[in-house]
Design a protein around this nucleic acid. Sequence first.
DNA 1: GCGACAG
DNA 2: ATCTTGTCGC
Length: 227
Amino acid sequence: MEIAEPPGWPRTPAEAEAVQDALRPRLDLRGPGPRRPATVAGLDVSYAGDGHDTGAPLAAAAVVLATATLEVVASSVATGTAAFPYVPGLFAFRELPALLDALRGLPAAPDVLVCDGYGLAHPRRFGLACHVGVLTGLPAFGVAKTAFVGEWEPPGERRGDSGPLLLDGAEVGRVLRTRDGVKPVFVSVGHRMDLDTACALTLALTPEYRLPETTRRADRLSRDALR
DNA sequence: GCGACAG
DNA sequence: ATCTTGTCGC
């Protein structure tokens, strides 16, 4: 798929925040999410050695699944190096260059992008899923494995149970149980999506495991590409 | 000021 | 994120 090259990549935290502020006006949080997405792409990045080092070798993967059958219909990998230090809140800049390269390798644009991390549930309300969504123009949301910001209460123990992730009184995400009695995941919208649709899609992508099949496939592909 | 902090 | 042994359970 085609993706316009961003103006430039930041090298310092201050520059990174400036980029976020420049992209923020392009965020589309209106209206419902995609009606009936035929395909969903999972994105993930794996590192060699210490994932904190700048310059660490990495591999980014994009795996497209048919929403109905969860079968892989396309995939792409891109290797590179971490061009930005790991800074909670700015970690999108570490993975973005390689992730966009991986997406460019796809034969066609998927209907939705699922990121391994956060969207609006972010200190500056602009996590990885927001960057990816704005830069590709595609609907995007994030599914994170651990808490980052906001207040929340553990949801019920059954798959499908959920509760709000609140930041300053606003629901910026949802804590969702994808498996009975298993630690919940944190879902938040990135671009051209609504929370209900994002949570419904997350459940559709987790018929067997806690994490979405999309991110599981992308994780395996990126990890394999590293060796 | 101190600690916590997606991957 | 990655580095690792053993262990519990379907």
